[in-house]
Design a protein around this nucleic acid. Structure first.
Ligand SMILES: [Mn+2]
Ligand SMILES: [Mn+2]
Ligand SMILES: [Zn+2]
Ligand SMILES: [Zn+2]
Lengths: 133, 133
DNA sequence: CAACAAACTTAGAATAATTCTAAAAAAGGC
DNA sequence: GCCTTTTTTAGAATTATTCTAAGTTTGTTG
């Protein structure tokens, strides 16, 4: 899958060469890579950059809502190209992470017992187990 | 709140002095402490022990389902005395973590779009935001 | 009980993901 | 082109956690 430049814009974020490359590398890698996996991917590419920059770019993209961070236990943080609301499934037999969507017409907040007036800024849902083979 | 020894048993786990003390310290501390906070609490107590042992004991208790681990982003892992299924709310204005229960009669799995035959071994749900003052 | 093996604890060293530092480079407005 | 701000960078620093290897405790067996 090719990703074209004009799709690599993020409202309110200056898209430097490096940020574009990191964003593109993530968009072309659906399997929730770590920062250093992305760094390795980029090493062999035109636009190589330092690991610190990969971290900086990912942080900027996360802050602007373009991508998501995924943490499973204390494993290295992984990054997700899917900016829509969704959950994650960590397949313990392969180590892979898969996106999970919520069934339509359901608002997750409605099933939680929260005090009146709670302000929610983010919601994360992560499962572990094995997928059917 | 005092916690008596006979409540500090965990099926299938040999309860050494150290494991009992770590378990008790967590039971007496409702605010999801870190390993090193528990270590500090225990330093001033009868049964002091090494930080490695606190980690070892917590790991054993987690593996046996007596307590839960809570990870929020990359912050130090926190431990939860509540072994029942529940979620967590991270209050960003205070840094505290609160337990969240699901409304009764609702099965969280039912609202997720999972492939037929998926085996789930754990489910985590974590919110961030602010609670009403 | 004494001997033994297995499980546990320990202090300190090692690890590794991430962040920090401070200097160079790039961007963009005027 | 000049100036200010932002970004990138290499490498050092940080720090939560794990590892190591030696000592201790526990439970078992003869
Ligand atoms: Mn990869
Ligand atoms: Mn505490
Ligand atoms: Zn995802
Ligand atoms: Zn909890």
């Amino acid at each position: 899958m090719k990703v074209y430049d004009h799709q690599l814009e993020v409202p309110g974020l200056r898209m430097t060469k490096q940020r574009k490359e990191v964003y593109r590398a993530l968009m072309e890698n659906a399997d929730h890579p770590t920062a250093s996996q992305l760094f390795d991917n980029l090493k062999n590419s035109q636009e190589s950059m330092s690991l610190a920059t990969v971290y900086n770019c990912l942080e900027a993209l996360v802050e602007h809502g373009a991508i998501k961070q995924v943490n499973v236990d204390r494993e290295p943080t992984r990054y997700c190209q899917n900016s829509a609301q969704h959950g994650h499934f960590h397949d313990q037999s392969t180590g892979t992470i898969h996106d999970i969507n919520f069934k339509s017409g359901i608002n997750l907040i409605d099933i939680l017992d929260l005090p009146e007036g709670t302000e929610i800024s983010s919601l994360e849902i992560t499962l572990k187990g094995t997928l059917p083979s």
